[in-house]
C-alpha cells in the first residue's frame, strides 16, 4: 500500500506537470518559447510513478520529452520556465532549452535530443554506482522509437553483461513522431525485447500512476539488491503531437478520445476521494497552489534577464586555454 501522503504528492506532481505544460503550449504559440518543444501531457503517471519510487540520489536520465521527469524529480518550476524562455536564470543558463533540461544537484542528468542517445550513458552512470560500491540505482526514460536504435541494444547488452543497477523505462506511446510502433518495431510489445538480453521485462499501465509506482517499488528493490538490470514498458499516450509543430494527422480522433478517458489525473483524484485518502477540498487547494506556482514561474521567466553576451563563451570546457574563443 502506497502511503496516503505519497499518493497526494503524486497527484500534486502530475497536476503541476499538466498545468505548467499547458502554459508552455500557450507561451510557445505566443513565440515566447522557441525551438523544439515536446509536451508530456497524458504521460505524467509514468514519470511520477517511477521517480517517486526512487531515493533522492538515484540518478535519472532522460530523452528530449523531459519536462515531466524534470519536474517529478523536484526541479524548480521557475528555473524550468526560465530555461524555456532562454533566460539567464534558466536551469541550464539558457543554453539547453526544452530538450536539454538537467538538474545535476538533483541527480537529474538531463534530456538528449538524439533518440536513444542517453541510454548507454545511463548504463555508464550505473557502472559508476557499481564501481563505487554504493547502493544507488539508475533510471533511464525513453520512448518506443528508441528501442530500434543501435545504442539501445548495445546498452542493454552492456547492462546485463556487467549486471549493472539500471532500470530501463520505455514509455510506449505507440508513435515515433508519426510512425506507428507496429510499422517500426519487429516486436511492438517492447517489454518482450528484454528476453533477448536475458533480463526481466515487465509491462504496466502507464496511465495508472499507482500501478506504475507499485511495479517500480518492487523492481527498485530487486535492482538495488544486485539482481541486475530490468526493462519496464509503460503503455501510455501523449495527447498532443510529437512536438508543438505536429498537427497529428496520422491518428484517429476516436483513438485520442479513448485514451483521454483514461487520463491518470482524474483517475487518481477519484480514488483519492473515493478511498477517503484525502478530500475534494484538499485537491482544490492543490489546484489553486499549482495555478499560483504556474503564474509565478511565468512571471519569473518573463522578468528574468537574457543571458549575458559573455556567457556565449562559457561552459564549453572546465579549463580554458588562450586559443579558445572569448569575448
Amino acid at each position: 500500500m502506497i502511503p496516503a501522503a505519497d499518493q497526494v504528492e503524486m497527484y500534486r506532481l502530475m497536476l503541476l506537470i499538466r498545468r505548467l505544460e499547458e502554459r508552455v503550449a500557450e507561451m510557445y504559440s505566443e513565440q515566447r518559447i522557441g525551438g523544439f518543444t515536446h509536451l508530456y501531457i497524458g504521460q505524467e503517471a509514468v514519470a511520477v510513478g517511477a521517480i517517486t519510487a526512487l531515493n533522492h540520489d538515484d540518478p535519472v536520465i532522460d530523452t528530449y520529452r523531459d519536462h515531466g521527469h524534470f519536474l517529478a524529480r523536484g526541479g524548480d518550476p521557475r528555473r524550468f520556465m526560465a530555461e524555456l524562455f532562454g533566460k539567464a536564470t534558466g536551469i541550464c543558463r539558457g543554453k539547453g532549452g526544452s530538450m536539454h533540461l538537467a538538474d545535476v544537484e538533483r541527480y537529474f542528468y538531463g534530456g538528449t535530443g538524439i533518440v536513444g542517445g542517453s541510454i548507454p550513458i545511463a548504463v555508464g552512470l550505473a557502472l559508476a554506482c557499481q564501481y563505487r560500491g554504493d547502493d544507488r540505482i539508475v533510471v533511464c526514460f525513453f520512448g518506443d522509437g528508441a528501442t530500434n536504435q543501435g545504442v539501445w541494444h548495445e546498452a542493454l547488452n552492456f547492462a546485463k553483461l556487467w549486471s549493472l543497477p539500471v532500470i530501463f523505462i520505455c514509455e510506449n506511446n505507440f508513435y515515433g513522431i508519426g510512425t506507428d510502433v507496429r510499422l517500426s518495431s519487429s516486436l511492438s510489445e517492447v517489454h518482450k525485447k528484454a528476453s533477448g538480453y536475458g533480463m526481466p521485462g515487465f509491462r504496466v499501465d502507464g496511465m495508472d500512476v499507482l500501478a506504475v509506482r507499485q511495479l517500480c517499488e518492487e523492481v527498485v528493490k530487486t535492482v538495488r539488491g544486485g539482481a541486475g538490470p530490468v526493462l519496464i514498458e509503460a503503455v501510455c499516450y501523449r495527447y498532443q503531437g510529437h512536438s508543438m509543430t505536429d498537427p497529428g494527422r496520422y491518428r484517429a480522433r476516436a483513438e485520442e478520445e479513448l485514451w483521454r478517458k483514461r487520463d491518470p489525473i482524474p483517475r487518481l483524484a477519484k480514488s483519492l476521494v473515493g478511498d477517503a485518502i484525502t478530500t475534494d477540498e484538499r485537491l482544490h487547494e492543490i489546484e489553486r497552489e499549482i495555478e499560483a506556482a504556474t503564474e509565478d514561474a511565468v512571471a519569473f521567466a518573463e522578468s528574468s534577464p537574457d543571458p549575458s553576451p559573455e556567457s556565449l563563451y562559457e561552459d564549453v570546457h572546465s579549463e580554458r586555454h588562450p586559443g579558445d574563443p572569448h569575448a
Partner: peptide
C-alpha cells in the same frame, strides 16, 4: 568490452557523470 564503440563512449560519459575518470 564488447565490440560496441558507441556503447563504449556512452558508458564512459555516464561513468564520468557519476564521478569517475574513464
Amino acid at each position: 568490452t564488447p565490440i560496441a564503440e558507441a556503447g563504449i563512449v556512452g558508458l564512459a560519459i555516464g561513468a564520468a557523470m557519476g564521478g569517475l575518470r574513464p
